[in-house]
Every structure is written in C-alpha cells, then in structure tokens.
C-alpha cells in the first residue's frame, strides 16, 4: 500500500507534482499514465525518498520510506535502467545492491536466471543493450522479493519474450497481494496488464479509477460496426439523441450510443440485410487521448465546441 497525501514538488518555478493525493492498493496492478513531463517519474522518486516533497507526505507500508527497516524487501524500484556503473559487471552490481540487506550469491544467481542474464552476468553493465539494461534494472527491483513494486517504463526496449515475462510477473505479483505501480507509454500493454489507473497531467491527478470505468466513462464507450447493402436505409432509422453515426462508405458505418441488439432488431423489423454487426470496445488509447485532449483545451482556456 502506498499512501500519497497532498504531495507537491516544485523545482524553482516549475511545479512538477501539484497537490497529488491517492492510495495505491495491494492486490492490483496500478497503471500510471500521463504525457511526458506530467510528473510520473517525480512522483515515483518522491515515494522512495530520492526527492523530498515541497509539501505533503508519502507513506509506504504505513511509514515513510526513509524509515524502512528493510528497504529493498519493502519496495523494489526500477526508475532508470541506465543508472548503473558502466565498469561493473551485472553480477557485481546485483551483489553490491543485495548486500545492503544481506542478500548473497544464491539469490543473485536466481534473479539473474529469472531475467535471463546469467550468460552475460560477468560482462560490464555499460556494454549492455537497452533491453539487457532493462532486465538488469528489473533484477535489482526483484532482488529482495519486495512487497511493493514501482516500475517506470519497465518494458521499454524489451523484446517480446521479455514483455510477456514482465506481464506474467506483474499479474502473479498482484495475485500474491503485492502493490504494483507501473508507468508505460504503451497503451495496449497497459490495457492488458493494469486493473486500476492513475492519470496525471501537469502534476495534477486527472483520473483515479478502474481500467474498465476509465475506458467506459472517458471515451464514447462501445461502438457498433455495421456492414449492410441497405446501409443507406438503416442509418436514418438509427438516428436519435446521443447516437453518432460515421459512415465509411456506401455499405459500412460505425454507430456509437446504440447497442448491437437495437441495430439488429431494427434491421429485422424493416427487412434490411446485415452482413456484419460487431461491437467494438473502446481502447485505453482512445479514452486516454480523449481525457488528455480535454485537459489540454481546458488548460488553454479556450474550450472549443467540438464538431458533431
């Protein structure tokens, strides 16, 4: 459990995090979204005490991280995979970090095998590719089998094997009742793995909700894709308040604000042919863009009336 209570962080004039309050609960994967520079990394740094908040408090597992008795066992962190000494081997890097909480060779070898770095563990970490560096960063986060996992862009540069492995790991960790905070720019990946979402923009909390609620409420919800030779006759029948129809060509259109049941029934009643009737769930990407677009307009102070 991570309890963030009214944290603000300013660097000179710039406000990086602005009065953020939220609780990141155990047992679910919490996704952390926001445009570049929105304050995601700063928030993560504030949680583990790398930066001190200008105002507010953060508690991890009930206390300030600075007072943690077994830091690495409480929180595993991946903030910057390139933050390793270039000349030190991956194995020595893990041994040095693990030693701070009494972790020795056996566990280091275990973690190296987990992230698939055993073969290259003796090589200087400075020569690692982005993906290998990322694996090493994940290995550090997992060293002491932590109760809380904070990962900033963990799949950045990982190959498909690595991405699938991280996905499985996060799901397992959530099932085991651990707390997971994860940021990523890959919306499709986030949609697959996260149960809960925090969205911030310009340091402020824009959304703190479950994944399904976020997609449902922020976007137009579900859409119905229709292919029909009688599209020209069907479209006027569907017209109603809240229904938006976008026609792609003479025989195809997409309708929002109406269910596939209604479309199918109407077609049957009027004897119109249907070749395809598909319900399309809105994606996280669409919902996210919708939310941040609104935010940008709001901030710009000139909320324009949207066409259609």
């Amino acid at each position: 459990m991570i309890e963030i209570n009214g944290i603000t962080k300013t660097y000179g004039e710039k406000v990086a995090v602005d009065d953020l309050t939220t609780t990141i609960r155990p047992g679910v994967v919490t996704g952390f979204l926001g445009p570049n520079g929105a304050g995601k990394t700063t928030t993560m740094r504030l949680i583990v005490g790398l930066d001190r908040p200008t105002a507010g408090t953060v508690r991890v597992g009930g206390h300030s991280y600075a007072h943690s008795a077994a830091p690495l066992a409480e929180v595993g962190v991946l903030l910057d995979a390139k933050a390793v000494d270039k000349g030190r081997s991956a194995r020595n890097h893990l041994l040095a970090v693990g030693a701070t909480v009494g972790i020795g060779k056996a566990r280091v070898e275990e973690v190296l095998a987990m992230v698939g770095l055993t073969e290259v563990a003796h090589k200087p970490a400075g020569g690692f590719s982005l993906g290998m560096g990322q694996r090493l960063g994940i290995a550090v986060a997992l060293l002491a089998d932590p109760a809380v996992l904070i990962l900033d862009e963990p799949v950045n540069g990982l190959d498909i094997d690595g991405i699938q492995w991280v996905r499985a790991l996060l799901t397992d960790f959530a099932v085991e009742g651990r707390t997971i905070l994860l940021s990523s720019h890959l919306m499709s990946e986030m949609q697959l793995v996260a149960d809960h979402l925090l969205v911030i923009g310009q340091g402020r909390l824009l959304a703190d909700t479950s994944m399904s609620d976020f997609i449902h409420h922020t976007s137009h919800g579900e859409a119905v894709e229709v292919t029909s030779p009688d599209a020209g006759a069907l479209m006027p029948l569907l017209a109603a308040d809240g229904v938006v129809i976008t026609s792609t060509d003479a025989s195809r259109f997409t309708a929002t604000g109406v269910s596939s049941d209604v479309v199918g029934d109407l077609a049957a009643v009027h004897g119109l042919r249907l070749h395809n009737l598909t319900t399309v769930t809105a994606s996280l990407e669409e919902a996210y863009l919708e939310l941040t677009r609104d935010k940008v307009e709001y901030v710009g102070g000139s909320r324009l009336a949207m066409a259609a």
Binding site: A70, A73, E74, G102, A144, E176, G177, R178
Partner: peptide, 23 residues
C-alpha cells in the same frame, strides 16, 4: 486474503532482510 498474505510476507522479509550498517 491477499492483504493478510501481503502483511505476513512483509514481516518475514523485513526480519531477514534488515538493512544494517555492517551490510
């Protein structure tokens, strides 16, 4: 429950993985 499990885990790990000056 996951919460109980999490608390129990944290305690065991904290006991064995204490951060000390010697470490």
């Amino acid at each position: 429950s996951p919460a109980v499990m999490s608390a129990a885990l944290t305690r065991t790990r904290v006991a064995t993985h204490k951060q000390t000056f010697a470490r």
